[in-house]
Write a protein that binds this DNA or RNA. Structure first.
Lengths: 357, 357
DNA sequence: ATGAAAGCGCTAACAT
DNA sequence: ATGTTAGCGCTTTCAT
């Protein structure tokens, strides 16, 4: 690896000053065409590439926005299925990148390490003009400090917990609305009367909002529910979902006519357990999820769920950042709620849509 | 947005020199514990975050690796399906990021803009310690120049064309082997005798290698094929695939007993066209693809195809880069070929595997 | 263990 | 239209 040429090398070779070289890259029109050509030629011959670091340092801007996301451990999915299971973070990344590209920004992504997110923010923050953070990724305190220096937008993904710093921009999805609509569908269109909600132990805002939507729908339909979910799970995994289904089946009294899960993973786990027990979905019991992960389409019966627009969330995050960047961060904090949509599939008794061709 | 505090601010507040502040962040052990605490405290109070740019400039390294990928236009998939369709680039990104994380690197991603990739490399190269490039993303010439200054690894994704710069590290998948194995399966296990290969007009190395694998299998099985694919397509899209199927159905003579497509998209298009014509897959004709995109599982019949390990490719890319970086780029260029695996599904007459639960 | 000072490669006034 | 000259915020010898 040879030492990289600098503006000085190019300038000397082209017989101009370094300022001219700089101009050729920043404002080509401010340089006479013939001069520009000479500079460009010299640069090409030398293999010159402007140092992003030096530029960033001198101009106080990088042309890069960032994303911090949690270390999702290894995807719960079997390795076989590795590339089918698209994680939230992947979708958000895609959305952010796409929008960033349109605005001429590149995207820097970094996940917290399993151990601690120590230094994650610092690492990213030091190299970008602004960034998005998936909730629960970094300590609130760190964000507090950094958001005074650059735009930060909080992404309330699924299963989050942190109280939001109220001066940050913030994007979330309509958890309550989605669960409400889905539940109403079960109650009104499928005549469900004894739905069981399966939530989590630690009440994250998202899961709480979903439960609220569930209860509201029940109340509206005159269906009785307690103030508590039928069950609370420690983690929202397939295993836990399967165990939840087992518990519900074995508990005394009448079997609920619908298992309403707080996410898709657990619902899929339940599907498996119910099949093992020889129970039919949706005939014996309806099962629904939340999130709309790809797997929800693949399972049989296909899972009725609430789809979250994660790609869109990424795009919105970028748009928000770019706007802040061009307005120097002025203006009130924005809080945006993205709409969700209910996917009515076979697990609630709706006709399954044909796979897209 | 307040002006960001610098080492000077922290140093002053902590009553030390800027060198000490710097040491606290780079080599904490070289600073007395009490001093370190004072510095850290001052930093916290001030909301100090080290400037990645300044660090990079002074130390000539960024702790970031990059990825340049092509602008895949908007995904062919319907918007509805947006989050189900995981692109290659997404998978490579995931793989690279995962591995990068393990080595303490962050990942900078940037796609070429539709128009031209002008400046893409420069933009990325200026901000990273090394990077990967998906084939056909940037002009060979630019890479030539840059690879003299930092590690660059070429990712021969699907449908590529550029001749490889032979001094770059390079990762590709076993296209020929995969197509060979798939074809042999059709010939030997399903008794196919008149397979038709559908390739592309511009012979990219990947597609060429696949065709070579196809021919080899045919030769071995004593099945006659020409030196040319039955059909060459302009673009590997679903539309083109559907048109190809139509052409093959309408051409005089016996219908081929298998359509062997160069990728999944086209195969899926063919599936649709065949269904429209009332032909049964695999009874009337077998259809196979190549790539193993998620959609290939979702269609009915599920598509038999060759799965490419794109996530793995991303991981390998990072590993290669990291190795080069720690060895200062010494050593011969590496060229790695990743194994692929055949997914036998319904479209060739194999029992369809139950969707993963 | 800590400090002083010289850059790192560029941009951004300010001249000319 | 082009050149001069300070920095930008850090790391890195070299001293102490």
């Amino acid at each position: 690896m040879t030492a990289a040429p600098t503006v000085y090398d190019v300038a000397e070779r082209a017989g101009v000053s370094i300022a001219t070289v700089s101009r050729v890259y920043r404002t080509p029109d401010s340089v006479r065409a013939s001069t520009r050509e000479r500079v460009l030629a010299a640069a090409r011959e030398l293999g010159y590439v402007p140092s992003g670091n030096a530029r960033g340092l001198a101009s106080r801007s990088t042309g890069v926005i960032g994303l911090c996301f949690p270390d999702y451990g290894d995807p719960a999915a079997d390795t076989e299925d590795d590339d089918t299971a698209m994680l939230y973070s992947d979708q958000i990344i895609r959305g952010m990148e796409r929008a960033a590209r349109r605005h001429g920004y590149a995207l820097l992504i970094a996940a917290s390490l399993k151990g601690g997110a120590a230094g994650l923010v610092a690492k990213v923050a030091g190299r970008v003009d602004g960034f998005a953070v998936m909730a629960r990724t970094v300590p609130t305190e760190e964000l507090e400090v950094i958001s005074r220096r650059m735009p930060v937008v909080m992404l309330a993904g699924p299963r989050e917990g942190t109280a939001f710093l109220d001066h940050l921009d913030h994007i979330e999805v309509a958890n309550e609305d989605g669960q409400h609509e889905l539940t109403r569908h079960l109650l009104v269109d499928h005549g469900v009367r004894r739905p069981a909600y399966i939530g989590t132990i630690e009440q994250s805002p998202d899961v709480q909002a979903r439960f609220d939507g569930f209860r509201l729908a029940c109340r509206e339909a005159g269906v009785e529910t307690g103030d508590e979910p039928a069950l609370r799970l420690g983690r929202l995994t397939q295993e836990e979902g399967a165990r939840a289904a087992a518990r519900l089946c074995e508990s005394p009294g009448e079997l609920p006519d619908a298992f309403v899960f707080a996410n898709d993973q657990t619902a899929v786990g339940a599907l498996r357990e119910l099949e093992r027990r020889g129970l039919s979905v949706p005939d014996d019991v309806i099962v629904t999820g939340f999130d709309g992960i790809p797997l929800s389409r693949l399972v049989r019966p296909a899972l009725t769920t609430v789809r979250q627009p994660m790609v869109r969330m990424g795009e919105e995050a970028t748009e928000l950042l770019v706007r802040r960047l061009s307005s120097k961060g002025e203006g009130e904090p924005v809080s945006r709620v993205l709409p969700v949509s209910v996917a009515r599939r076979a697990s609630c008794g709706c006709t399954e849509t044909t796979p897209t061709l």
